[in-house]
Design a protein around this nucleic acid. Structure first.
Lengths: 121, 121
DNA sequence: GTGGTTTTCAACCAAATGGTTGACAACGGT
DNA sequence: ACCGTTGTCAACCATTTGGTTGAAAACCAC
């Protein structure tokens, strides 16, 4: 289910630590230890964070001996962007249409249906 | 703190019910009751959801008698898009650079450090 | 094979989350 | 003035989340 992945992706990025990890993975791949380094938490905690990112499809892990290098997966970002863009666009359009309506009815006392919610009438 | 708002926005959109509400608010403004209608949960629960969206800055509420019409705020989407675009772009760039490297070394048997993680040796 | 490094698994804990119900505030209609 | 409607607040409950510690798996190096 795509909706479910979207939920996972948003949830994953809701955490500042995980967003920071993504930011660093955008620059270069890194092992769990390398990722854990800057933070003042246990490696286990970071490992969990990576699992969350991986489950969301934002990160993939491969093997290199004991190490598990993490790689940022760019495709998932498109999923988000698509979702956001759709509704941002609609909201924006409505806003601009309202602007047009307001300009059009300068001096008119009857609000159009765009403003119904405010119309006590 | 901008980082904090970003966390709130992502967290708010991690819930499918709230995403659906946003989708409907993108079409038209709606009261709490109207928003609650399609869902099989109490109005109180929906009221809470709206509070989360409002705290994140995604939604604003006004007054109309007993009713509290909700309005989608488009600007916050830009905050998200900006964050996402930055890292998507970097990841994309890196990916394309890798493509270039791969093309450049056609026939070479030694993988560069870009591929280390996959190299079983 | 023994030991060190890297990472994950398991159990546990405190805090946050999403839901419930009950009470009540705010308002319009009659 | 009352009643119905609309929405929020408060208390509560189950589940999830982000952290901890301890143990163990997987691997290289010696």
């Amino acid at each position: 289910m795509d909706d479910d992945q979207l939920s996972q992706v948003f949830a994953a990025l809701a955490d500042p630590t995980r967003r920071d990890m993504v930011a660093r993975l955008a620059v270069r791949d890194a092992t769990v230890g390398e990722l854990a380094d800057p933070y003042d938490v246990s490696v286990q905690a970071v490992s969990k964070h990576i699992k969350v990112l991986a489950d969301a499809g934002l990160v993939s892990q491969t093997r290199d001996a004991q190490r598990r290098p993490c790689h940022l997966e760019a495709e998932v970002f498109d999923l988000m962007t698509k979702w956001i863009e759709r509704y941002r666009q609609q909201a924006q359009d409505r806003y601009e249409r309202l602007d047009g309506v307001l300009a059009e009815m300068r001096g008119d006392e009857r609000p159009t249906d765009h403003l119904q919610r405010g119309a006590a009438s």
